[in-house]
Amino acid sequence: MESGQFDTISVRTSDNVTLGYNIAGLGSRLVAQILDNLLAIPLTLIAVLLYGAIASVFVTSAEGATFADAGAGFFAGFAYFGYFFVAEAVTGGKTPGKSAMGLRVIRVDGSAADFGALAVRNVIRVIDVVVVLIGIVVMFFQPQTRRLGDLGAGTIVVRDRATVTLASAVAPPPVMLRTPDAGPPIDGLDHIGSFEHDALRVFLSRPGLSQKLRADLAADIARRLLDRLGLPPGAPERLWPPELLIERVYLQLDQRHR
């Protein structure tokens, strides 16, 4: 919706405003996954080594060693998958990998992912990973890049990072005026609103246009402005050069709304 470069989901808030969330793509999800594995695998190894160290001290029989070996295998699984669950539960939906990629788990209604939802998506992670990486296949075909665990939990991974900063959004390119004088008041300015004002502003802040293109564009805009203003046939504004008309309309709109 807002940002053409990402798929979005729309969430209607209780204030009846629609928010657009940028959905995390397969690529950034996989990179986040790799980053998490760089942490999860060493942590799992450490956990298993600790288990083994404890076992080697206390196990006294061959039978016990078999149990300890098999138990360590299971323990590895719990440690590995536990990393993701604990990381998401503690941070409210951002494992370190997701955090690094600016991703975050939320529920599809826009609210924060709660304990139950995170439990579902992390238990089902086992299926997503173990069954021939079915999670990646599902994410590839699912329009919102959700894996089975997301579908079960009603969650979605979104981009949490600001795409536009306030500083860049509030400082649009400067307007360049040739005659910084608003001129005599123009009739019919009431017919023109903020949408046209924004359009004029975009035109007046484009430095890179060639002379000819600029003149053509100005003539086109001026013709539409004159239509919109509804001036009588003999009005003096019709005789102004197009660019002068545009600048004066812009300046007078500006003054009017100050």
Binding site: T13, V17, V164, A169, P172
Partner: peptide, 24 residues
Amino acid sequence: APITEYLNTLCARAHPLLYRGRAW
């Protein structure tokens, strides 16, 4: 306008902080 996208992202980041299920 870029400000519209800015405001959307701002609200989208703030929304889940306020709206959430019962805490565990």
